[in-house]
Every structure is written in C-alpha cells, then in structure tokens.
Amino acid sequence: MSLYEIAFSGQVVTGAAPELVRANLAKLFQADAQRIALLFSGRRIVIKSNLDAAAAEKYRAAMERAGARAEVIELQVEIEEVELAPPPPAAEPAPAAAPGRLQVAPRDEYMAAFSDVDAPDFGIAPLGADLQDAHGEPQAPQVDLSQFSLAPVGSDMGQAKPAPAAPPPDTSHLKLQQ
C-alpha cells in the first residue's frame, strides 16, 4: 500500500483572489492569521503525511475548493530486509533434558531460537483439584490475662471523681452605700 503526503507552497488556483483563499484556508484548517501567513510564506509546508490514496485525494480536493493548489506526493517507504538465522541441523540429536524438565522442539526458524530453553515440566492438576497449598487452622494468640480481675456488680469502676466545688468568695469587706 502506497502512502502519500499533502504539501502546500503558497500557490493559488488560477483566477482565485489570494485574500479569499487565505480566509477559506483559515476556515478549513481552523487556524489563526499567523499560521495562515506561515502557509503563504513561499516555503513548502507538509500539511499531512502518511495518508492512503483516498484520504490524500480528499485533502487535495478540499484545498482546491478553497482556492489553494496542493501537491500530492507519494512517499518512498524503505522496507528493511531481515535475514533469519538458519534452523539448527536436524541430524544432531537434541541434548537430553534434565529429569523433570520439558524438551521443546522448534516448529520453525523463529522458534529455533528457543530450542535451548530449559523449562520446568509443570503438570496439569486433575479436574476439581485445589491448586492452593494447604494451610493449617489459624492458632489463637496466647495472651496472659492473669493481671486482670472483675469488679462486683454496681461497684465504682474507677471513673474520675468530679473536683470538689471551690469555696464561695469572701464578700465581708464589701459595703452598700445609700
């Protein structure tokens, strides 16, 4: 699939008024005057990149209706070639797996990289088996309560006693005058 980019370098469609094209592009891109001035600076500006052919044509047509001449350029995408490692020779006997370990045979070149993986051989539990390790019943903590005793019913439990009322103030030195 080819990818395209849309670029604009300030060219207007023949017969279009530049100020009207600026206003149309400002409305189309919802851009302020500073960004529109940058579009008309004469430099080539990439508007959108990595578009498929249909989307690139939509952008070009919309800009042409606004009065601007846009360039549609096909991008040259370089695909990096990766060489896979050759599979191990089939004539060599596979090393013996350690007891309790699973020996993995590669199915293709990609999986050949995992041929020397030493994986534990996990079994499958029977249907309905409990997979969690068994735990004993929880033990109650050993707490020494010998220093505590019970008070008889209705006894004072040691609540704080209210402070005694303060003595009334001495008013013997006061006199009433008429």
Results as ranks from 00 to 15, higher is better:
57 E>R: 09
106 P>I: 00
150 L>Y: 04
62 A>V: 03
144 D>Q: 12
125 A>S: 13
13 V>W: 01
176 L>C: 05
130 D>T: 14
46 V>F: 05
174 L>A: 10
39 L>V: 00
153 V>P: 08
79 I>G: 10
67 G>A: 03
17 A>M: 06
160 A>F: 02
154 G>F: 02
7 A>T: 15
32 D>W: 01
66 A>R: 00
83 E>F: 09
119 A>S: 10
112 A>T: 05
29 F>G: 04
68 A>T: 01
117 V>C: 08
149 S>V: 11
129 A>Y: 07
168 P>I: 03
143 V>E: 14
10 G>E: 04
4 Y>F: 15
76 Q>D: 10
43 R>L: 04
173 H>S: 12
95 P>K: 10
59 Y>S: 15
95 P>E: 06
96 A>E: 07
110 Y>D: 11
132 Q>T: 13
9 S>A: 15
153 V>L: 09
157 M>N: 13
125 A>H: 07
161 K>D: 09
114 F>Y: 13
46 V>N: 13
85 A>H: 06
80 E>F: 00
1 M>F: 09
26 A>S: 15
10 G>H: 07
37 A>T: 12
8 F>Q: 03
46 V>S: 14
107 R>H: 07
57 E>A: 13
118 D>A: 08
19 E>W: 00
93 P>N: 08
10 G>V: 04
72 V>F: 00
96 A>V: 07
6 I>G: 04
98 A>M: 06
51 L>E: 02
95 P>A: 08
149 S>P: 00
103 Q>M: 05
154 G>A: 08
15 G>Q: 04
152 P>S: 08
149 S>I: 02
